[in-house]
Amino acid sequence: HTVDVQGVTYHFDNPEEARKFAEEMAKRLGLQVHVKDGRYKVE
């Protein structure tokens, strides 16, 4: 499970961890979480 944050890619084994990380980063950076091709993108 992959999370892209402003061009940096993070990998997680656990989909729940990936989702939480994406939401946390989006909140911290004031950005949105998009799901695209099964990847989380924070932009």
Rank of each mutant, 00 (worst) to 15 (best):
H1W: 11
H1N: 12
H1I: 09
H1Y: 13
H1T: 14
H1G: 12
H1R: 10
H1V: 08
H1C: 14
T2H: 14
T2I: 15
T2N: 09
T2M: 14
T2K: 12
T2V: 15
T2D: 13
T2S: 12
T2E: 14
V3P: 00
V3M: 01
V3L: 01
V3A: 04
V3Q: 00
V3I: 02
V3W: 00
V3S: 01
V3K: 00
V3Y: 00
V3R: 00
V3N: 00
V3D: 00
D4W: 13
D4Y: 08
D4N: 06
D4M: 07
D4A: 06
D4C: 09
D4K: 05
D4Q: 08
D4H: 06
D4I: 07
D4G: 05
V5F: 05
V5L: 08
V5T: 04
V5Y: 04
V5S: 04
V5P: 00
V5A: 06
Q6F: 12
Q6M: 14
Q6S: 08
Q6E: 11
Q6D: 07
Q6W: 08
Q6H: 08
Q6Y: 09
Q6G: 08
Q6L: 15
G7L: 04
G7S: 06
G7W: 05
G7M: 05
G7Y: 05
G7V: 02
V8N: 09
V8M: 11
V8W: 10
V8A: 10
V8Q: 12
V8R: 13
V8T: 12
V8L: 11
V8Y: 12
V8S: 09
T9K: 07
T9H: 09
T9I: 14
T9L: 14
T9S: 11
T9E: 13
T9C: 14
T9P: 08
T9W: 09
T9G: 05
T9V: 14
T9Y: 10
T9N: 07
Y10P: 00
Y10M: 04
Y10V: 05
Y10F: 11
Y10L: 04
Y10Q: 02
Y10A: 03
Y10K: 03
Y10N: 02
Y10S: 04
Y10I: 04
H11W: 12
H11E: 10
H11S: 12
H11Y: 13
H11P: 05
H11I: 13
H11G: 07
H11T: 13
H11D: 08
H11K: 11
H11A: 10
F12T: 01
F12P: 00
F12M: 03
F12S: 00
F12E: 00
F12H: 02
F12W: 04
D13G: 10
D13N: 12
D13P: 10
D13E: 13
D13F: 10
D13S: 12
D13M: 10
D13Q: 11
D13C: 14
N14H: 12
N14W: 09
N14C: 14
N14K: 12
N14D: 12
N14I: 08
N14S: 12
N14G: 11
N14R: 10
P15C: 12
P15A: 12
P15W: 06
P15T: 12
P15M: 11
P15E: 14
P15S: 13
P15V: 09
P15Y: 05
E16D: 13
E16A: 10
E16C: 07
E16I: 12
E16Q: 11
E16W: 12
E16R: 09
E16V: 11
E16G: 10
E17M: 11
E17N: 11
E17A: 12
E17K: 10
E17R: 09
E17Y: 08
E17I: 09
E17F: 08
E17C: 14
E17S: 12
E17W: 07
A18K: 00
A18D: 00
A18P: 01
A18H: 00
A18N: 00
A18Q: 04
A18G: 04
A18T: 04
A18V: 02
A18I: 01
R19P: 02
R19M: 08
R19A: 07
R19Q: 08
R19F: 09
R19D: 03
R19Y: 08
R19W: 09
R19H: 06
R19G: 06
R19L: 11
R19K: 10
R19E: 06
K20P: 02
K20G: 09
K20Y: 11
K20T: 13
K20A: 13
K20R: 13
K20D: 10
K20F: 11
K20V: 12
F21D: 00
F21H: 03
F21C: 05
F21Q: 02
F21K: 02
F21W: 07
F21A: 03
F21T: 02
F21P: 00
F21L: 03
F21N: 01
F21Y: 07
F21V: 03
A22Y: 00
A22E: 00
A22F: 01
A22R: 00
A22C: 05
A22T: 01
A22N: 00
A22I: 01
A22V: 02
E23R: 08
E23H: 15
E23G: 07
E23D: 09
E23F: 15
E23A: 08
E24A: 13
E24H: 11
E24G: 09
E24P: 00
E24W: 13
E24F: 14
E24N: 09
E24C: 15
E24I: 11
M25A: 10
M25Q: 11
M25Y: 06
M25E: 13
M25R: 06
M25C: 15
M25V: 08
M25G: 03
A26W: 02
A26E: 01
A26D: 00
A26G: 06
A26L: 01
A26Q: 01
K27H: 10
K27Q: 11
K27C: 14
K27R: 14
K27W: 10
K27G: 07
K27D: 08
R28D: 05
R28M: 12
R28F: 08
R28V: 09
R28Q: 10
R28C: 14
R28S: 08
R28L: 13
L29T: 04
L29I: 03
L29Q: 03
L29P: 01
L29C: 07
L29E: 02
G30Q: 05
G30L: 04
G30H: 06
G30C: 12
G30K: 06
G30W: 03
G30V: 03
G30P: 00
G30A: 04
G30N: 07
G30S: 06
L31H: 04
L31N: 02
L31R: 03
L31Q: 04
L31D: 01
L31M: 14
L31A: 08
L31W: 09
L31K: 03
Q32H: 14
Q32W: 07
Q32F: 11
Q32T: 14
Q32G: 06
Q32E: 09
Q32M: 10
Q32N: 07
Q32V: 15
Q32P: 06
Q32L: 08
Q32R: 12
Q32D: 06
V33R: 01
V33M: 06
V33I: 07
V33Q: 01
V33H: 02
V33C: 08
V33E: 01
V33K: 01
V33Y: 05
H34N: 09
H34M: 09
H34R: 10
H34K: 12
H34P: 01
H34W: 08
H34L: 09
H34C: 13
H34Y: 14
H34T: 15
V35S: 06
V35P: 02
V35C: 14
V35Q: 07
V35A: 05
V35K: 06
V35M: 12
V35R: 05
V35G: 08
V35E: 12
K36E: 15
K36T: 12
K36L: 11
K36S: 13
K36W: 06
K36H: 14
K36D: 13
D37Q: 05
D37H: 06
D37P: 03
D37G: 06
D37N: 09
D37M: 04
D37Y: 04
D37R: 04
D37A: 05
D37L: 04
D37F: 04
D37E: 06
D37V: 03
G38M: 04
G38T: 04
G38F: 04
G38H: 05
G38W: 03
G38L: 03
G38D: 06
R39W: 09
R39N: 15
R39G: 15
R39H: 15
R39S: 14
R39A: 15
Y40F: 11
Y40V: 06
Y40A: 04
Y40P: 04
Y40T: 05
Y40M: 07
Y40N: 03
Y40C: 08
Y40L: 10
Y40G: 03
Y40S: 03
K41S: 15
K41N: 11
K41F: 15
K41R: 13
K41P: 04
K41D: 07
V42T: 02
V42K: 01
V42N: 02
V42I: 06
V42G: 02
V42E: 03
V42A: 02
V42Q: 01
V42F: 03
V42P: 03
V42M: 03
V42L: 10
E43I: 07
E43S: 09
E43Y: 11
E43F: 09
E43T: 09
E43C: 15
E43K: 05
E43M: 08
E43H: 07
E43D: 13
E43A: 08
